[in-house]
């Protein structure tokens, strides 16, 4: 589905991700693990095309960027905006409805369905400001369900979210994976990774390991990751790659 070839990414010539070569295959359920500043978010943004490679490339196999759906780390949603849960989730149908096509009853049934799946049944008419943090995260997942993306990118989807919500949403992700979705998620909690994710990509500015979770998350690998990835990428040495203009 995705191939990274010798991929180097960064801001102002300071690389955040170094010469990464790895593959994400169709049907993968991958945890993206690494210390702070390891380049996890940068990698996700490069898949979306928001950060362009300094060197190397990303190849899309059998999908286009249109098929990728992304849940950003800190969502900049204005939760004071007077919109209902139903309207918010319905915006997930943008690709189909665009600016003018009418919403029909069947669409609202889909919305209802998505809300049931994330455990927000009956919340349709509530406004955004009435939701708790956990409920709001469920809401974002409900909208993701509407998009029916082939590749789901989730950047720290469980930061500051209660245990119950994490469990429910993980079960939901497992189901989605069972239905054929490919999922890549940045996760900090290693217990969660061991419990749910068959495959792990351990990143610390460079690739530490990729493969079966148990093997990748070995004590040696984790130690290596924490020593290399220590500190902010801004302080990384300037990479000897000619800058692209």
């Amino acid at each position: 589905m995705l191939d990274f070839h010798n991929l180097t990414l960064g801001y102002n010539r300071h690389p955040a991700v170094h010469h990464l070569t790895a593959s994400i295959n169709s049907g993968d359920f991958v945890a993206l693990v690494g210390p702070n500043g390891a380049g996890k978010s940068t990698l996700m943004k490069s898949i979306l095309g928001h950060v362009s490679p300094m060197e190397g490339e990303i190849q899309f196999r059998g999908i286009t960027r249109e098929d990728v759906s992304y849940l950003p780390q800190a969502s900049a949603v204005d939760r004071q905006f007077p919109l209902t849960v139903e309207q918010f989730v319905a915006s997930g149908l943008w690709q189909e409805k665009r600016t003018h096509k009418a919403y029909r009853k069947v669409d609202f049934d889909t919305v209802k369905d998505a809300l049931v799946k994330v455990g927000l049944a009956g919340f349709e008419k509530r406004t955004l400001d009435a939701l708790s943090g956990g409920q709001f995260q469920r809401l974002l997942f409900a909208r993701k369900l509407m998009q029916q993306a082939k590749l789901l990118l989730l950047d720290e989807p469980f930061t500051g979210v209660d245990e119950q919500t994490i469990d429910d949403l993980m079960v939901l992700l497992t189901k989605l994976h069972g239905q054929g979705a490919t999922i890549v998620a940045v996760i900090h909690n290693l217990n969660l990774v061991r419990r749910y994710f068959p495959k792990t990509l351990l990143l610390s500015r460079e690739l530490i390991a990729i493969g079966e979770t148990q093997t990748v998350l070995s004590p040696e690998n984790l130690l290596r990751a924490s020593t290399i990835g220590f500190g902010d990428h801004v302080h990384a040495e300037v990479c000897e790659v000619p800058e692209r203009v």
Binding site: L48, S69, Y70, P72, S75, A76, V77, D78, F81, L83, F88, S91, W94, Q95, K97, R98, T99, H100, L128, R143
Partner: peptide, 23 residues
């Protein structure tokens, strides 16, 4: 009326709008 939906999304969730549309 024409810009209603993108305008609403631009207010509520600009990042999301950016990820799905250039409007």
């Amino acid at each position: 009326t024409l810009i209603y939906r993108p305008l609403v999304l631009e207010c509520v969730d600009p990042d999301y709008l950016k990820s799905i549309s250039r409007l």
